[in-house]
Design a protein around this nucleic acid. Structure first.
Lengths: 189, 189
DNA sequence: GTCTATAGCGTGATAGAC
DNA sequence: GTCTATCACGCTATAGAC
């Protein structure tokens, strides 16, 4: 459970990247926050890019794995959506900085990793879209444009870490109830 | 209507910043895209920072002005929300790159401008919050947590340019109808 | 595993010719 | 209004001592 030095570096980097963005954080900044010199970082990691990759790919995999787990379950589309919302809340709470970094800095991944990330994101959206279409076909969901539903829900879930940063003391169960209601049932009486 | 050289620079900069982020775009990159040398840019602008300021403050003012216009109208809270959604759609269509840049790069504004931007954003959220509370008090809106409603709607509207970039050929009226329905009435039948 | 020193390059910005 | 040339600095990353 105790993080080794490499993990410590990645953890601190995620924190700094979240605040200033990948390009605005230098290896000197990162080293200073860890109480060492920049050159010493290279005993634990090969490059700045490797740090970014470590952050983004880890959490991207979490999302991918989870949606592939929920998708085939023998439950209603609405229940699947509730599980997905719960997952986003959980990951937001556990890995705030990693998630923020993924959202803001994925375009700074180099060639191969960026292509990889884009594929994973597309796969995630496809699975999500299928659940929405399933719900519409079963008449659980409205006959509205599923692309707009997808974007609307996902944009809220993806940037939820911004809200959570300012409201860390909320009860997670109340949060889940309120967020699910707002996203699925809207705000109008 | 024809943009002068300074406006041309700002327009092209917004486009590049949107794709790569402020720090990843050099003055040399920007100049090359305009077909001139980096040094020539400085005949039209004083600094890179001034370009960022020009982009962000312009669109931040648009939002602030508009919500102060809608807020005191003698119409229902729901009608106000509909007007706000319409405004976000309009600005997304007219100023996609500026909006993207504001969302992604505001933290790279320097001291004074950043403080200014943060104030404007807080003011915008306050006005928005008041409309939601007004709607709850009038029993037009559900008795759910207004902070979650605020965040949920606003996060979708703020990142809407991401969706629009891939769906430019949608009919604006259909878009408004579907987005309003999804945000206000949810997706469940 | 950390340090000092430094290579090699890219950056924002300026001076001054045309 | 654009150019060439250049300054001063910050960046990632490496070499090699301890």
């Amino acid at each position: 459970m105790k993080p080794n030095r490499k993990e410590e570096i990645i953890l601190k980097a995620a924190q700094l990247f979240k605040e200033k963005g990948y390009n605005a954080v230098s290896m000197r900044d990162l080293a200073q926050d860890l109480g060492i010199k920049a050159a010493s970082l290279y005993n634990h990691i090969h490059s700045k890019q490797e740090i970014l990759e470590g952050i983004i790919m880890q959490v991207a995999r979490d999302f991918t794995l989870h949606i592939h787990e929920v998708s085939p379950k023998p439950i209603s589309a609405i229940q699947k959506l509730e599980e997905i919302i719960q997952m986003h809340i959980d990951l937001t709470i556990q890995k705030t900085d990693f998630l923020a970094c993924m959202n803001n800095d994925w375009m700074h991944l180099e060639e191969e990793n960026r292509a990889n990330y884009i594929d994973m994101r597309a796969d995630y959206e496809t699975k999500f879209r299928e659940i929405l279409q399933e719900g519409i076909a079963a008449k659980e969901l409205k006959e509205s444009d599923p692309e707009i539903m997808l974007f609307s829900i996902l944009s809220t879930l993806r940037t939820f870490y911004l809200w959570y940063a300012k409201n860390k003391n909320i009860n997670p169960n109340v949060l889940k109830k309120d967020l699910t209601q707002t996203l699925l049932q809207g705000i109008i009486v």
